[in-house]
């Protein structure tokens, strides 16, 4: 479980996050949604420690992450898997080397065991026989899947995804969503996804945290969201004609 309390973050005079509280349960996919510039990615980076919040606390299973020093954080970080918006695969390494990198660095597994693990992870994301390809030889969807394979290589307890569907066609986006949901159930990990893709929200949103101008404006499940009367949330979620039609059909 991940718990955040009163997170504040600003860049100069720009206050990006203003006192965010939330609890993210294990075995569930939690989504952070909001318009551009609402502070979604900043909040995610504050949780994983890539940004330091000015105020507030982040707890990973009751261990306070915000007060830990760099060495203490390493033990938590080895249990984190993260999929970045642009995949962030290491350009100079093949797909296989990307996946075994963390295993090389932190485990004493034999070469055979590491290769088996890499093949298992690639198989899990439906990317067999891509071991020797470089990231530049992969499509956007394949890069995302390799990113997920790398994120799960160490069997993470916490999985973070920053806009996993950006730049993907709808069919591939649904595949990625399904994969995130399956892996969350399989590893019983605490999964936090930053997105503004409404298909993801309606498809995999067990818990949704809506940010508006750096503040927590609403939280609940995707089913609760359909009944919500919060104007800012409705303006964001039901902005497209398709979502408006879907809502009126359900109502």
């Amino acid at each position: 479980m991940i718990e955040i309390q009163n997170i504040h973050k600003s860049f100069g005079d720009n206050h990006v996050l203003n006192g965010i509280d939330a609890t993210f349960e294990p075995g569930k996919v939690s989504l952070i949604i909001g318009g551009s510039g609402s502070g979604k990615s900043t909040l995610l980076k504050c949780i994983v420690g890539l940004h330091e919040p000015e105020e507030g606390h982040v707890f990973f299973d009751a261990q306070e992450f915000t007060v830990m020093n760099a060495d203490e954080r390493v033990s938590i970080r080895r249990e984190i898997g993260m999929l970045f918006q642009n995949s962030a695969l290491f350009d100079s390494m093949t797909v296989e080397q990307n996946i075994v990198f963390a295993l090389d660095m932190f485990t004493d597994m034999s070469r055979k065991e590491k290769l088996e693990r890499a093949n298992f992870c690639l198989d899990r994301v439906n990317l067999k026989d891509t071991n020797k390809l470089y990231p530049s030889e992969l499509s956007g969807g394949m890069k995302k899947r390799v990113g997920i394979a790398r994120a799960i290589s160490m069997s993470p307890k916490y999985l973070f995804c920053d806009e996993p569907n950006s730049g993907l066609d709808p069919a591939t986006a649904i595949l990625i969503d399904e994969l995130i949901q399956e892996l969350t159930e399989e590893y019983q990990c605490t999964t936090i996804v930053v997105t503004h893709d409404m298909n993801s929200v309606m498809g995999i949103g067990d818990y949704i945290l809506f940010l508006y101008k750096g503040m927590k404006f609403w939280e609940g499940s995707n089913k609760d969201m359909l009944q919500s009367d919060v104007q800012e949330l409705n303006d964001f979620v039901f902005a497209s004609p398709l979502m408006k039609a879907a809502r009126s059909t359900i109502k």
Partner: peptide, 18 residues
């Protein structure tokens, strides 16, 4: 610098690598 702007350095830090 390229690794920084494409978040590859962030990926290393998230893994717990110095």
């Amino acid at each position: 610098g390229s690794m920084r702007v494409t978040e590859q350095i962030d990926a290393l830090e998230i893994m717990g690598v110095n």
